[in-house]
């Protein structure tokens, strides 16, 4: 890994507004080191989803600078932005699965976009669906799955490429305890293998159970210091 990539993400004084609306993010300063795991917490409307969208390069910032994987992410061309996006896995709160494709094809999508050979796609997707317990659902379209199963497919799609950075927006909110715990293990395992994880959640039990640094947002701002919870308290 190149030296500058020990820092995966650096945001300085980043503000963002949707179209002509008012600012939803104000002067965000954030630094994520490679291989770190952070929870992102805050009340509804605090700007967690907007922050994840900015980091995923889906919305432009109105002010500030973002350095992602060592590149100035604000001034990227289409090809370079696409290259960076392929290193990011995103779990959406609203799933955003393609209803005309099967579960298998939804999960395979990021690999195919990366032009991974079809034999490798088949093996990896089958393995992952097997692991998360959706082996018997591979041919079904997402609308025929339960909400929890759709959540699993969304997560599988986000992690299938073993991304360098995983952004997850309330990824465990629709799952039963057993599945949520299993998925959390998946995130932790990815983190152990070097993936940087930023996970937005409301689940206090999750925060208490897993001792990772917590970033707290409120009214579009990251609280000063940005580290709260068990680790901060321990430090």
């Amino acid at each position: 890994m190149a030296p500058q990539e020990t820092v995966i993400l650096r945001m300085r004084s980043v503000s963002m507004r949707y179209a002509a609306g008012s600012e939803v993010l104000h002067d965000i300063d954030l630094l994520l080191k490679a291989g770190s795991f952070h929870f992102l917490v805050g009340p509804s409307g605090a700007g967690k989803t907007s922050l994840l969208r900015v980091i995923a390069l889906t919305v432009p910032v109105s002010r500030g600078t973002i350095t992602l994987f060592g590149r100035d992410a604000v001034a990227l061309g289409e090809a370079e932005r696409a290259r960076l996006r392929r290193r990011i896995g995103v779990v959406f709160q609203d799933f955003r699965l393609l209803g005309h494709l099967s579960v298998f094809d939804n999960v395979a999508l990021p690999l195919r976009i990366n032009r991974v050979p079809e034999a490798v796609v088949a093996r990896r997707v089958t393995e992952l669906l097997d692991w998360i317990g959706l082996r018997d659902r591979t041919r079904l379209p997402p609308p025929r799955l339960s909400v929890g199963e759709r959540q699993l497919v969304t997560i599988a799609r986000a992690v299938i490429t073993r991304p360098d950075l995983l952004l997850a927006d309330e990824p465990l909110s629709n799952l039963d305890n057993r599945r949520a715990e299993r998925l959390m293990h998946l995130f932790v395992e990815l983190h152990r293998r070097g993936t940087t994880v930023l996970l937005a959640t409301h689940d206090k039990g999750l925060l208490e159970h897993h001792r990772f640094p917590i970033l707290e947002m409120d009214s579009g701002r990251l609280r000063s210091g940005s580290l709260i919870g068990p680790l901060a308290a321990a430090g």
Partner: peptide, 18 residues
């Protein structure tokens, strides 16, 4: 059946369904 057989003719964009 999984893998290439079930996927080759699928488009990412659901144009055929429109």
């Amino acid at each position: 059946m999984t893998g290439p057989e079930m996927s080759e003719l699928e488009l990412d964009l659901p144009l055929a369904e429109q």
